[in-house]
Structure formats: C-alpha cells, structure tokens
Design a protein around this nucleic acid. Structure first.
Lengths: 174, 174
DNA sequence: AAACGTGTTGGACATGGTGTCCAGTATCTT
DNA sequence: AAGATACTGGACACCATGTCCAACACGTTT
C-alpha cells in the first residue's frame, strides 16, 4: 500500500517540478513561494502542508537527488580502475540534465554544490583510500576537479557525451 | 583629493564590515538590510543611497576582492614554474581570512564561488596557454581543483600555512 | 455504494522586509 | 563662514511569509 495519498503525491511532485523550472528561468533567490504554487497549480496552504519553507523544498529535492545518485553509482561497477564511479556520475547527470543544471548551475546559485560536493567527496575518499592515497588535501583536490569538470560540462549543455566528458576527467586525474 | 566624502566612505565601510560579520554569523540568506544597517550604525536610507539592494552590496564587495586578488597576484612573480600564481592566492586568502571565509565558505552560500572561480579560471587559462596545454576541460579541471583545495583549507581555519597549502596543491597538480 | 478520513482550497490575519521619499540636521569641503 | 553634500528618522505603499480555519473534494476502506 502506498505510503502517500495520490493527491499528496501529485501536489508534491507538481511543486518540485515547478520549483526546478522556476530556478532555471528566474534564479533561486528570485523565486517566491507564491510563484511556485501558481506554477504548480496548487494552493499556498498546501505548500506549507508539505514543506516548511522554500529552503525545505530545496533540501528535500536535493536529498532525492543524492539518493538517486548514490544508487546509480552503486549499481554500476566500473571495475578496479581509479575513479571508477565517475562514469556513472556523468551519465546520471546527462539523464537528469535539467535537474542538475537547475541545482548545480549558476542560475541555482550553486544550491546543490554543497550536496553534490558531499556525495562526490565521499566517493573520492573511498576510492583514494582503496588505493592507499587518501589525504584530506587530495580528497579536496580531486573532488574540486571533478566538480569543476562536471559543472563546466553541464553549463555548456552536456555537449560532448557523458563518456567523453568522463574520459577527459580521467585523463587529467591520472 | 579623495573621490569620496569622508562620511560616505565611513558609511560604506561600516556597511561592508557589518555585512561580512552577519554573513558569518547568520548566513547570507538570513541577513536583512535592516540588520546590516543596525549593526553598521547607519540609517536605512543611507544604505539605499549607496547600494541598490543586498545583492548590489554583495556584488561591490566581491568586485573589491577581485581587484585585490588580481593585484596581489600581479605583484608577485613566482618565476616560471607551473601555477606560479597559486602561492600569492593562498597568501592573500590567509591575510584576508575572515573576508574569504564569509564569501567563499558554506555560510556565505558559496556567494563568492562565482567571482573566485572567474578570477582563478582566467589565471589557470593563461598559465596553461603559456605551456601550450590549454583546453577548456583542463581549465575547468585545474580551476575546480584549486578552488577545492582553497575552500577546504579555509574551512579548516587556514590551518597549515599558506605555503604548505600551496605546496599540497602543486604536488597534486604536477 | 456509502461512510469515513484526509488532502486541498481560498481567504483572512499579523508580522516584517523592501524600496522610496522628504524635510531637517550634521558634517565635510572650499 | 558659506555652500555643498551626506546622514537621519520617520512615513508610505507594496509584497511575501507563515499560520489558521471552515468548507469542500477526493481517495480509501468497509
């Protein structure tokens, strides 16, 4: 049995979708709760029944992305090569292009940088540890580098394929 | 002769200072113009005489930092070695620790990431070009890596010396 | 199908921030 | 000293926020 009433689920999803669309077109700061509700076709009272405020909506959205990402990486086995997870990361980003751009791009005010950074940082740390090369500065270095290539690639419209972007990163990193 | 009336300069600086302090203690989003004025001991009308809004204050503050940084890098000659400018960058960050942390740290919502990113990106691009290794992806890669190490270092309180942090970066990058 | 439970609605409300304006006052410059 | 310019503090209209509620509609359950 579904944990959530159909109506509740519809409202939630409509709000999330509207939020992402507005972030892209207006920028995170400029988006108001009213706008989100209008675009979602949902009463403002309903918004507050689901989320504490705009930041809460953002937080829950990022939590979802975090889980998706972690699952995608988990599901892929890139073998033993260094930074094996990066391929899955680029491919997930390509598949959910709009979502990533909204949250990680400049328009989103780098809202998701924090969350992405946390996920990537963990992956990098584990990877380096496996190879006996983990140091805090190295983790910061490779995390930043990967995030740099990822956002660069997203902002130019995920233009080269995910596979190619992944290769570009890995060539530089090794 | 001074381009700016003493009074005007005092007000400006008081507002900038108050803004930075509040960002650190409250976080960028939570800071209101009223709070800034109260902390600066300045009338709200005065604020609007100097800045269009909070974002404008932020923008002008970052412009200042950008110029400082560029000047600091310009003034130093790190010889011919790769990424010669990075030393000056870390040292400037150490000298203006509070300012950097307010704008680049998590508390500031990564407000300055954009500005820092732009400055560093230009420097990296020029450096790589000089060595005939410039490609958009490489610029993104090293810019991200340097930004990653820099923010990591700042958030742990600029704990190892600037010199040491610089060395850590350069070892990984070359 | 009917009854129940729960999500949704729209509107009211108090609160507080925003950006603008102005007349009076304080301070700087010449 | 006189003129210029910045500051003050308060008023203003406007808009967004977050909370509440009674009426309603939809989904779920029996």
């Amino acid at each position: 049995m579904p944990r959530l009433d159909r109506r509740a689920q519809r409202s939630r999803e409509a709000l999330q979708r509207a939020f992402l669309a507005l972030i892209v077109s207006e920028g995170y700061d400029a988006v108001s709760v009213r706008q989100i509700c209008a675009k979602a076709g949902v009463s403002r009272a309903t918004f507050y029944a689901h989320f504490k405020d705009k930041a809460d909506l953002k937080r829950k959205g990022m939590l979802g992305m975090k889980h998706q990402l972690a699952a995608a990486v988990e599901a892929s086995d890139g073998g033993q090569q260094p930074f094996a997870f990066s391929r899955a990361l680029f491919e997930h980003a390509a598949a959910h292009h709009g979502q990533h751009r909204a949250l990680a791009g400049t328009r989103g005010g780098g809202i998701a940088q924090e969350a992405l950074q946390a996920v990537i940082s963990d992956l990098v740390k584990a990877d380096l540890a496996r190879r006996g090369r983990a140091s805090p500065s190295a983790v910061a270095y490779y995390t930043g580098a990967l995030l740099g290539v990822l956002t660069w690639w997203l902002e130019r419209g995920a233009k080269p394929s995910a596979q190619e972007a992944d290769r570009l990163f890995r060539v530089l990193a090794t």
